[in-house]
């Protein structure tokens, strides 16, 4: 008797991901025909499962383009970029980049940035827990000492820059208090943070991303304000400080 063909996992995976390939050799069904439909159950489980994972991860992108378009787009992404760990909540790291290069989505130029915002919000959800700086402690801070002080941030804090109003777009599609009207003629850099259990996205005031990014890089408040003023002529320090403190993204101010 000839030995049965050894199971080739590589061949199995290639056929899973490429519907034009026949099912791998050495499979058995209750009949003698090529087991296309049976193999298709696995193909479907893998691909549909990962599309579902992206749909769950990028709900606003899905709403913006519609279910059918999103699933077709996600299918392309799944075929070229599988998860690198079994942690599905990490899947989609390069989805925004893929969307940016996805020709049929060009008519929605803000879509890649919305995907970046959603990915950042997912990361914030699973970030290390930390206690935000109590607001009353902040109020008692001597302002003259702030210039040389540095800040410690909640581990969930991320800045997502954009030329489009991504926070307003996100809120219009997801939040319980959607804005009444939405115009696309302004830019919004987003501050993403999860001070406790809820992930929040805030639209940063002008110069806010340079301000926060400098602070996050270890720069002092004075340095951050200068960097922000260079980036945005209308940088308003008071408005930015107020926003930053209200967001509860800080865990300490180091004097």
């Amino acid at each position: 008797m000839a030995p049965s063909p050894e199971f080739d996992q590589e061949e199995f995976v290639r056929a899973l991901l490429d519907p034009d390939l026949p099912p791998p050799a050495g499979l058995k069904a209750t009949h003698d025909l090529p087991p296309l439909r049976r193999f298709a159950v696995y193909r479907n489980n893998v691909v549909v499962g990962l599309i579902d994972a992206l749909a769950e991860r990028f709900p606003v992108c899905l709403r913006l383009v519609g279910e059918e378009f999103f699933r077709a787009m996600a299918l392309r992404h799944v075929r070229r970029s599988l998860p690198r760990t079994p942690l599905l909540f990490e899947y989609g790291e390069d989805f925004a980049e893929f969307v940016a290069g996805f020709e049929p989505a060009r008519s929605l130029p803000y879509l890649p940035d919305v995907a970046s915002l959603e990915y950042a919000m997912g990361r914030a959800c699973h970030a290390v827990d930390a206690t935000p700086l109590p607001l009353d402690l902040v109020r008692s801070l001597p302002l003259e000492r702030l210039e040389a002080a540095t800040a410690s941030f909640h581990p969930s804090t991320q800045v997502v820059p954009s030329d489009y109003p991504i926070v307003s777009i996100w809120r219009a599609n997801m939040a319980t208090d959607p804005p009444r009207s939405l115009t696309l003629d302004h830019a919004e850099d987003a501050l993403v943070v999860r001070p406790r259990l809820d992930v929040e996205a805030h639209a940063l005031p002008s110069g806010g991303s340079a301000f926060i990014e400098t602070l996050m890089g270890g720069g002092a408040f004075g340095e951050a304000a200068s960097a922000a003023s260079r980036r945005a002529k209308d940088f308003d320090l008071t408005a930015n400080l107020r926003m930053l403190l209200a967001s509860e993204a800080l865990t300490a101010i180091n004097i």
């Binding site: 590589e10 050495g26 489980n45």
Partner: peptide
Amino acid sequence: AWSTRATSFLNDLLPLPYNETT
């Protein structure tokens, strides 16, 4: 079952033959 090939996670419980090697 198996679900990983190289560093890719396939997100399904895939079948294996039952023999001495496996």
